[in-house]
């Protein structure tokens, strides 16, 4: 698994629960180090061990941990850069939903060896969508739910999200858009970041 993903998990645990918890998790997962490097690639098994150890320590299911990671990725001040990248998708939440199809390609533009699962958006009615994420990354659907929820807050949209489970290594998330302009949302300026 790419270091960026592993490091995100590490930063989530550290920023949310503190250094001590992260060190506990790293020890419980039997990591040969205590720091993932963002630009290196690690064995997939390590990621699974870290997630399981975190779930045990936090007394949550793995799915809940993954969803929290998704929320953290968008809403924590340390990840302002990532939120901005997602907000480039467009002016409204629907634009954002429609941009998900491009997400893996956009990601590859920036970090060529970071492969995200293929995402496919289907629109069933004016307000109902489903997103499928394909194999290779079990549990990514839960991360996606966290991201979608936090981005809805960011855009000020009101949505209902359901993880519909996994079938043939494809996870499906259902999105019901209740209101696009429910709340104020957070500002996004193209020039918000210097440089």
């Amino acid at each position: 698994m790419h270091g960026l993903i592993n490091r995100s998990i590490q930063c989530f645990l550290r920023d949310t629960y503190g250094d001590a918890l992260w060190l506990d998790v790293a020890a419980a997962a039997d990591l040969p180090f205590v720091e993932f490097e963002a630009m290196l690639v690690y064995e997939d098994a390590l990621t699974g061990r870290v997630l399981d150890a975190a779930a045990v320590k936090l007394k949550k299911t793995r799915a809940m941990v993954l969803e929290d990671i998704g929320t953290y990725l968008v809403s924590h001040p340390n990840n302002e850069g990532l939120r901005r990248l997602l907000r480039f998708a467009g002016l409204g939440y629907e634009d954002f939903l429609h941009s998900l199809d491009d997400l893996p390609d956009r990601t590859r533009l920036a970090v060529s060896d970071l492969d995200l699962p293929e995402l496919e958006l289907r629109q069933h009615s004016a307000s109902r969508y489903s997103i499928t994420c394909s194999a290779g990354f079990p549990g990514f659907g839960h991360v996606l739910v966290g991201i979608l929820r936090a981005m809805a807050d960011d855009y000020g949209a009101l949505v209902i999200l359901d993880h519909m489970g996994e079938a043939q290594r494809v996870e499906t998330v259902e999105v019901t858009l209740v209101e696009t302009a429910f709340a104020e949302g957070r500002a996004f300026e193209l020039g918000g970041k210097a440089g």
């Binding site: 490097e37 963002a38 990248l85 480039f88 533009l109 920036a110």
Partner: peptide
Amino acid sequence: IEMLYLIEAKTAAMEASRTL
């Protein structure tokens, strides 16, 4: 917009590389 996106993404990736 794609270019701005790319600049920000590359800056973040470069920063991560530089740290490493």
